[in-house]
Design a protein around this nucleic acid. Structure first.
Lengths: 222, 222
DNA sequence: TATATTTTTTAGATTAGCCTAAAAATTTAT
DNA sequence: ATAAATTTTTAGGCTAATCTAAAAAATATA
């Protein structure tokens, strides 16, 4: 007997999943509140509810962790989100910076039949338009290995841009102005000590990017 | 300055629109309640809200009518519903009896850009998989003319099945068992007085259908 | 270790959408 | 035209998800 999961709960589970990726500690109430633009007291209420449904394990004052079934739901929501993003870009010709908000709505459509048929229709894509891996229907996610942030690689290294850590429209539009897109080959020329800004070469042209940008570029050294 | 319209309100507006198609009177509270599986008192509450937003004109005890802006929203919701149904059948290979519930969810996605791009992607279809006309982005709907219910035509007439008045899965599955689908050519052979059941010929085969079925088949005489 | 700060939880309200039961208005029937 | 039946509205509650403000617990600091 499965509980019915709604829109709001899916958003909480997704947020907890994302936050638990960085550290392997329990996720704090405040962190969830910040990520969902809500208040800590609302989060506490919801954690109690999700704990009762067996989707998170929650110990007062010590944060939460997803249970296996909670994680499965989170991954399924992420799967739907990313598949819809592929649909919007590949089939409806949206730009990669325009799809996030629409996918936030589409990810809550309930029908596994729909999701699986969409997956097939799109040709079982492995990555979304921002380079994020798409979980399969069992919640298995192909983590990209050997990737780093551009800010972490050594001077002189050649690498390929395989993903972005920030999918916001402003950031993506900014990238386009620097001729950066998924697949771009980048060579790190230099990092300036003063402000940690970087000098890179893309398509034979030398450019300068801020450390803030470099922190959001996921690259694979060649 | 446009009010934000949510899921629930869209459903009410759509129901009022459908109900006001049959008669040109105001739509009654009870009729709306029945159509949405809710209670009359809930409908009254919502009518006050929609009236305040200028989407219906409501006079206590005398039912409601959509205003122009209310009708535009209803038609836009119907547009989205029917476009998604086309998507599900044409692109994802769903059967026509499987798409209603999924489209009920998809119709509430908010993005006119999405709707219009979907329309283009689908090749600007004029009818959905059940033969219902799809409104354009201005809420203009191409009513099919010269159509009747199969129960209304004269014995001996040849006609084409162009639509169904009931899109429920049970009904559509039932039709398939009688080899009836959109575009089928039908000749009305006889109507039995006893139970108003009909004898028809489809694809050179003679079949018998109930008056209940005939009341739900929209046909165009040849 | 005691105190100050921060984080989290609790308590009590609010809003949207729904409900039941009772009251009011309208419609139908005698 | 009056009574009966039906429809609609009002009144008062409920739940989910949110909020603010206060209390409690944990963590950091002196």
């Amino acid at each position: 007997m499965r509980h019915f999961i709604n829109h709001t709960e899916e958003n909480y589970l997704k947020a907890i999943f994302s936050l638990s990726q960085t550290s392997n500690q329990g996720v704090s109430t405040n962190a969830i509140a910040k990520s969902l633009n809500t208040k800590a007291s609302s989060v506490t209420d919801m954690m109690k509810k999700l704990a009762e449904k067996g989707l998170v394990s929650y110990k007062k004052y010590y944060g939460v962790q997803l249970t296996d079934s909670g994680q499965l739901i989170a991954l399924n929501t992420i799967r739907k989100h990313r598949l819809w993003e592929v649909f919007l870009v590949d089939k409806l010709s949206f730009n990669w910076d325009e799809v996030h908000d629409i996918a936030e709505q589409l990810e809550h459509i309930q029908s596994s039949e729909l999701t699986n048929r969409l997956d097939i229709f799109l040709g079982n894509p492995k990555f979304d338009p921002h380079g994020d891996p798409i979980p399969n229907s069992h919640g298995e996610i192909e983590n990209y290995h050997d990737t780093l942030l551009l800010s972490e690689i050594e001077t002189g290294t050649f690498c390929t841009l395989v993903g972005v850590a920030d999918s916001s429209s402003v950031f993506l539009k900014h990238l386009e102005k620097s001729q950066l897109k998924l697949g771009s080959e980048i060579r790190l020329i230099n990092v300036f000590e003063y402000d940690r800004s970087l000098s890179i070469e893309v398509a034979n042209i030398q450019r300068s990017i801020s450390n803030r940008v470099a922190d959001n570029l996921i690259v694979k050294p060649l």
